[in-house]
């Protein structure tokens, strides 16, 4: 049982990061950016390109890929979403545009790297470290550590720093921000940077634990989306409880029923939340979510 609780913690920490990355963009632009799934994939594939194919030192490869993903995120924003926003298209069209962008970017990965599973962790597979009758691998330890550090620090940034406060200000009322002289586009760019950074980290951590393929980002993103809907937008506690709930439900259904029903149970929870508690755990307004 302890081992299952550990598994739940590890997968929920990944979901939490995805959900945070997702909601950072939502705060400022008010739409669900599906193209983030492609950024998740890009993060891991750039590490593969640099460290496995080009034999760069590993840490250097990771830093380089994270930087490239952030640049890609900014490019997406400047070349596509900025123009859409200027034309003030409806958030449904916005959503569809991001879906289209995801398909384009994901196919770029498929074209260059091929669709088969790739391995970036070529080190010897070892029996996990045994801590109190629980096996945990180094990567899993790292995942837990990095995701909690990132989650806490990003939340601190949002709560304490000027930039974070501006992001939240843009979230609550754009027009008022303009009156107060907060540059909306600059704040959006900053939140895009933060969210692309998180997406790249999630991709790398996930690909390190298991293998990767060009479409693995989408599943992760979908779970992140479910977490946001269950947790409620803009609530830290909501995100934590949402990701814990989703991953416990998945692992317990895998344990007590069968792993092929994991997704089914996840989406049953999603739909019942939408019907019974549409504002999520936090109770914050979710009616802004139009999709």
């Amino acid at each position: 049982m302890q081992q299952i609780i550990l598994n739940i913690l590890i997968s929920s920490s990944l979901y939490l990061l995805v959900a945070l990355s997702f909601s950072l963009i939502y705060y400022t632009t008010k739409f669900f950016n599906i193209a983030l799934a492609a950024l998740i994939v890009f993060g891991s594939y750039f590490v593969y390109l640099f460290s496995v194919q080009l034999n760069f030192p590993f840490l250097f490869a990771v830093i380089l890929s994270v930087l490239i993903v952030i640049i890609l995120g900014i490019l997406n924003e400047l070349l596509v979403f900025y123009h859409l926003r200027k034309k003030s298209v409806s958030s449904l069209k916005y959503f569809i545009a991001s879906l289209g962008l995801y398909v384009i970017l994901q196919n770029c990965v498929s074209l260059y790297f091929g669709d088969d599973s790739k391995v970036i962790n070529n080190t010897e597979v070892l029996v996990g470290n045994k801590i109190f009758s629980v096996y945990i691998t180094n990567i899993q330890l790292l995942t837990l550590f990095i995701s909690s550090v990132l989650f806490i620090s990003i939340n601190l940034v949002l709560q304490k720093t000027k930039i974070g406060k501006s992001i939240r200000a843009v979230e609550s009322n754009v027009n008022l921000c303009k009156i107060y002289g907060i540059n909306e586009e600059r704040i959006i760019l900053i939140s895009v940077c933060l969210s692309s950074f998180l997406a790249a980290i999630v991709g790398i951590l996930s690909a390190f634990d298991t293998n990767m393929s060009p479409t693995f980002g989408f599943n992760l993103l979908l779970y992140g989306l479910v977490v946001i809907i269950i947790g409620g937008i803009g609530s830290t506690k909501g995100l934590i409880s949402g990701s814990l709930l989703i991953s416990s439900v998945q692992h317990f259904s895998a344990y007590y029923i069968d792993s092929k029903w994991m997704d089914l149970v996840t989406y049953i929870i999603l739909i019942s939340f939408l019907i019974l508690k549409p504002l999520g755990f936090s109770g914050k307004r979710l009616r802004k979510v139009e999709i």
């Binding site: 081992q3 299952i4 598994n7 997968s11 298991t210 293998n211 479409t215 693995f216 599943n219 692992h251 895998a254 344990y255 069968d258 792993s259 092929k260 994991m262």
Partner: peptide, 12 residues
């Protein structure tokens, strides 16, 4: 049983 594309088999 597992589905194509599953990645986490630890619980099973």
């Amino acid at each position: 049983s597992f589905l194509e594309g599953n990645k986490d088999f630890r619980t099973q």
